[in-house]
């Protein structure tokens, strides 16, 4: 291939069966314009060492599997151009603030457990959810209040960049807190009070002191720092009784609001 240059990749390796602590291994990779970090990792696996472990899936910045520390910055390997980072040496390690399972694979379970703890779903009357009769009504302005925070792909980059999480593993972290805010601001939801018990606790939003690193590294532009600060304002205002009680929005029953929509029957099962 023409216009190739050799870039040195310093890969942090760790085999839980052999190694006590991680170490660096260096690989020379021929790089051409357009190659991403994930391509280099595949090149290493195919040409140098098939035992190199890394996690990936979609290869287009959607699934959030390939988050790793690239030249000191947590980001996705699949949408980071090698030549944008460096044309000489690149250091790749697993996401910090998580345990390493092997090589570049972190254990993201603490992230998912914290995410689960804030009830990341719309909470409504159960009867209404089991027997839906119409659509929930929401204006475009109400949608804009939380739309930015829905783009989270749970890659863990924000958690890896957070300095508070670096020293305090009990802190919820930017991802779960921004998602709590995402559902709190959804007018279809009525679970804010339940989430406030978690987000307003001693390990919740008030441990954030706006280092802003989560927003800087987020590969999807979610801006978790912004969500956490607005969440804190809401927690304070709610504590001071300065926020009106928010009722979940009502269903929209199409023309003739209040009547049951004529919902067509589902087609018969074919299997």
């Amino acid at each position: 291939m023409s216009n190739e240059i050799n870039v040195k990749f310093h890969i942090r390796r760790y085999n839980p069966k052999k190694d006590k602590s991680p170490y660096f291994q260096v690989f020379d990779i021929p790089v051409s314009k357009g190659m991403v970090i994930l391509d280099a990792l595949h090149y290493i696996r195919e040409n140098y060492d098939s035992s190199l472990a890394f996690r990936y899936s979609c290869r287009m910045g959607v699934c959030g599997s390939c988050g790793m520390l690239i030249n000191g910055s947590p980001t996705l390997a699949c949408n980071t151009q090698i030549l944008d980072v460096s044309d000489k040496e690149i250091t790749i390690g697993p996401l910090p603030n998580f345990q390493i399972l092997k090589d570049l694979v972190p254990d993201l379970m603490p992230l998912f457990e914290k995410h689960r703890s804030i009830s990341p779903f719309i909470i409504r009357d159960e009867k209404e959810l089991d027997d839906p009769e119409g659509e929930y009504y929401q204006t475009p302005e109400q949608l804009e209040e939380y739309l930015q925070f829905t783009y989270c792909i749970k890659c863990g980059c924000c958690m890896a960049a957070c300095p508070t999480l670096a020293t305090d593993k009990n802190y919820l972290g930017p991802q779960p807190l921004s998602q709590a805010h995402r559902y709190n601001k959804d007018t279809r939801d009525s679970g804010r009070k339940k989430r406030n018990e978690i987000t307003g606790s001693r390990d919740g939003a008030f441990k954030c002191h706006y280092a802003g690193e989560c927003s800087r590294v987020c590969p999807k532009g979610v801006d978790p720092a912004k969500a956490v600060q607005i969440l804190k304002r809401q927690l304070v205002f709610e504590f001071l009784h300065l926020i009106k009680k928010q009722e979940p929005c009502q269903k929209l029953h199409g023309p003739g609001k209040g009547e049951k929509l004529d919902i067509p029957e589902a087609p018969e099962k074919t299997v």
């Binding site: 991680p22 000191g72 996401l95 603030n97 345990q99 390493i100 670096a166 593993k169 800087r216």
Partner: peptide
């Protein structure tokens, strides 16, 4: 597993931070 928590040094030194 290897605990990859950055600790107090992670506040400043272990990354390209803003």
């Amino acid at each position: 597993r290897y605990d990859n928590r950055l600790g107090i040094l992670g506040w400043a030194f272990k990354g390209r931070w803003g």
